[in-house]
């Protein structure tokens, strides 16, 4: 009764581990150094701004074109998030269906794979024709969803199948219903896998919406991808970079939001998220 193991003392930082402050500071310093050199190099070697604009010009372009760019950013955010949401719901539902019936899985899974491996660029023209040229946004949404769908499906299906065999026996023993099994056992077991899938798909939804916009062009609302194409055509390279910067920031925000969600949900129990104390 005295096997106490939980009273662990958290040491500030174990030897060999880099403190948090350093981990934050080093990349920031590196970034400042690179940007500083970039700025210096552009002026020193007099690189034309339509080839490689200085960081200060990019910031200028960002501020000057902020109304246009933020409207485009909003369009891209909407499409990306909507695609991500739809792909998550569809992916998880499909995975749940697959594990209910082997027949369903073996008959549908190959088509999910085909959908995944076919380059989205190649499907774009078809989708565009089907939804009509007046609804380019719908086409973008569909294409981004297709790109984001598969990792969620395959990860969730894998997670739902990776339930501990003994726990399954336990649920059998206590006469769990199909639904109870799903809610109490399979979903919690699969959660780390689902979150892993979401993390991949969050990035893919953004890539999907950008690539789709490159291919399909833009409808009423212009997204960031089309801003890049348009700025390139006008040789407004600083604005191109500014749009690119916004896309990167969006990608980083999506990634960190999902990492944060993962940590919140798994921190109590899953090995991937718990802080090690030994």
């Amino acid at each position: 009764m005295a096997d106490n193991k939980t009273d662990t003392t958290v040491t500030a930082s174990s030897p060999g581990e880099i403190p948090r402050s350093v981990r934050l500071l080093v990349p920031i310093l590196l970034g400042i150094a690179v940007i500083g050199f970039w700025e210096f190099a552009v002026y020193y070697w007099k690189i034309p701004k339509f080839i490689f604009p200085a960081p200060s010009m990019i910031v200028q372009a960002l501020i000057f074109d902020l109304p246009t760019l933020s409207a485009s950013l909003w369009t891209t955010v909407k499409i990306t998030l909507a695609a991500f949401f739809i792909a998550s719901v569809l992916g998880i539902c499909a995975a749940v269906l697959f594990i209910q019936s082997k027949i369903l899985e073996i008959s549908l899974f190959p088509y999910a794979v085909i959908l995944q491996v076919t380059p989205v660029v190649a499907i774009a023209p078809f989708i565009l024709i089907w939804v009509g040229l007046d609804h380019v946004e719908r086409a973008l949404l569909i294409l981004a969803t297709i790109v984001a769908f598969f990792p969620i499906l395959s990860n969730t299906a894998l997670g739902l199948k990776s339930v501990d065999h003994n726990l399954r026996n336990l649920f059998d023993l206590y006469g769990a219903s199909r639904f109870q099994r799903l809610r109490e056992l399979e979903f919690p077991s699969a959660l780390p896998y689902i979150l892993g899938g979401l993390k991949i798909s969050g990035g893919l939804a953004l890539i999907g919406s950008v690539v789709a916009e490159f291919v399909a062009g833009s409808g009423t609302g212009t997204g960031l991808a089309w801003r890049i194409v348009e700025s390139g055509n006008r040789l407004n390279i600083p604005r191109m970079f500014a749009a690119l910067l916004l896309l990167s920031i969006l990608g980083v925000v999506i990634f960190f939001s999902l990492s944060w969600l993962e940590r919140i949900l798994l921190s109590k129990w899953h090995e991937s998220a718990v802080r090690r104390e030994n």
Binding site: D164, L170, Y174, G175, A176, Q180, E184, P188, K268
Partner: peptide, 22 residues
């Protein structure tokens, strides 16, 4: 069972609650 067979995502209380919950 041979193994403790506990649900890692549930507290001790909730693990023990399982048969009654089901």
């Amino acid at each position: 069972f041979q193994e403790p067979t506990l649900m890692p995502w549930a507290t001790v209380f909730n693990n023990i609650y399982l048969p009654l919950k089901l």
